[in-house]
Amino acid sequence: MRDRLQDWVPRIVLAPSFAAVLLFVYGFILYTGWLSMTNSRMLPNNDFIGLANYVKLFGLKHWNIALVNLAIFGTLYILISSVLGLFLAILLDQQIRNEGFIRTVYLYPMAISFIVTGVAWKWFLDPGIGLQNTMHKWGWESFEFTWIKDSDMAIYTIVIAAIWQSSGYVMAMFLAGLRGVDNEIIKAAQVDGASGVLIYRRIIIPMMRPVFLSAFVVLTHLAIKSYDLVVAMTGGGPGRATEMPATFMYSYTFTRNQMGVGASSAIIMLVMIFSIIIPYLYSEIRAGADRR
C-alpha cells in the first residue's frame, strides 16, 4: 500500500502546476476563442455570432494600422537587432581588454522595464527638451528631429528604443555561438590563406544559423507582444500612428467596450506567435532528444 502511494506522489506533486497551466493558459485560450465568436461588449456574454467579429476586425482601419505598424516595427526591429547584435559580438570576440565590462554595459538594458526605457527615450526624443533642443544649444540651429510628434515617423522612434533595449541580448546570443566555433577550422582556413573577413563571411557566419534562428524567434515573439514600450513612449499616438495589435486589443476590450472584437484580435496575436514558436520548439525538442 505504501509503495502504491509512493508511486503516485510525483504525479500528485506535479498535478497542481499542470492543472493551473491547463486552466489558466489553455482553458483561457479556449474561453477567449469562444468570446471572439460572441457579441460581447462591456461584459462577456454568450450570444454566438460566428466569425462576424473577425470580419469586422479586418475591416477596421484601426486594426489595419496596427498590423502595418507591427510589420514595419517587426521587420526593422528584428533585422537591425540581429545585424547589430552579430556585429557587436564579432567585435567583442577579438580578445578585447575589459570585455566583461563592455558586455555588461551592452546588456544592461535587458534588465530594466520597457516602461523605464520608454520614459528615457520619450523625453530624450522630445523636440522641446531633448535631442533637438540640445543640438540647438550646441549651435546647430537647423537640426530638426521631431519624429516622435510626427504621425508618419513616430513608429520609428519605437524601433529606436526597442533596438536599444534588445540588441545587447542578441549580441550575447551570438557571442555564445562564436565562442562555440572550433578554432581548428579557423586555423585550417588561415593556412589556406583566407583573410579574416573572408573567414567570417564564408565560414563563421554561416555556422551561426541556429543562433540566427533563435534570435529571430525570440525577437519576433517580443515584437508581437510589444505593449509596454508603446504605452510609455507614445500611448499609441500621435493619433493612432503607433497603434500595435497589443495596444489595439487592450483598448477595444477594456476602454471601447468591444470585448468580442478585442478577443478576436487576441486570437490573431496568438496564431501569429504560435505559427512561429510551435515549429521552433518542436525542432528544438527533437534536436535535444537526438543529442541525448
Partner: peptide, 28 residues
Amino acid sequence: WSFRGANLVFGLMLLACFIPFQIVLIPM
C-alpha cells in the same frame, strides 16, 4: 520520476511561456 505523457506535460508547460498575455486578460 518520468511517466508516460511526461513529455506532453512538459511541452504544454513550455508552450505556455510564449503566449501573448492578451489572450488571458479577459478570463483572468
